[in-house]
């Protein structure tokens, strides 16, 4: 019964996109929670449901807008990230590629695709498209995230958008100092 349910979930998610590799045998409950969070928060970006998936207080090690440095965050403080994402990049999709579970942890490697039709990192819209990867790790307790880690390929994304780090400027500044 359990494996049938799992197969149904995996099949439903995998159907429209590329195949997801899932290594979550024995951890079906956390997988199910992750997939629901993925659908509601990451894809639909329905910030009104943030308390369903995040504990009122949790630890964030992530370097994204959700905060980092092993600091305590509140579920409420995560809302702006999804509000901004929905507003600035309405067509952004996230595709699960690999989901791995162990104990109370779930690791997800995803690809994010979208068009930069609004501000990003303080830069104005370029109208260009991007496809970048991210890896996230979540610790669940009683069906909610109590800790998160992660990173994304920000440099790859900026390169695709033409918003490069000014290497030439750095070199020039250094030459001036000499």
């Amino acid at each position: 019964m359990r494996s049938f349910l799992l197969a149904a979930i995996v099949c439903a998610v995998a159907a429209p996109a590329v195949a997801i590799e899932t290594q979550c045998k024995g951890n079906e409950k956390n997988l199910e929670t992750y997939l629901k969070m993925y659908d509601v928060l990451f894809m639909k970006r329905d910030e009104s449901r943030v308390l369903e998936f995040y504990a009122p207080e949790f630890v964030s090690h992530n370097s994204d807008a959700g905060g980092g440095g092993a600091e305590t965050r509140t579920a409420e403080s995560m809302k702006p990230m999804w509000i901004d994402s929905k507003k600035n990049q309405p067509d952004r999709v996230m595709i699960n590629e690999l989901i791995l579970c162990a104990g109370n942890l779930v690791v997800a490697r995803v690809t994010m695709k979208g068009t930069q039709t609004g501000p990003l990192f303080g830069m104005t819209a370029t109208g260009k498209t991007y496809s970048t990867t991210a890896t996230d790790i979540y610790r669940f307790k009683d069906g909610k995230v109590v800790e998160r880690w992660g990173n994304s390929d920000g440099i790859g994304m900026l390169s695709q958008l033409g918003l490069l780090l000014p290497f030439a400027q750095a070199q020039a500044a250094r030459a001036e100092k000499k």
Partner: peptide, 13 residues
Amino acid sequence: GMMTQMGFKLTPP
């Protein structure tokens, strides 16, 4: 994050 810590800043094209 690393590049930012090293003092590199973003510039539009």
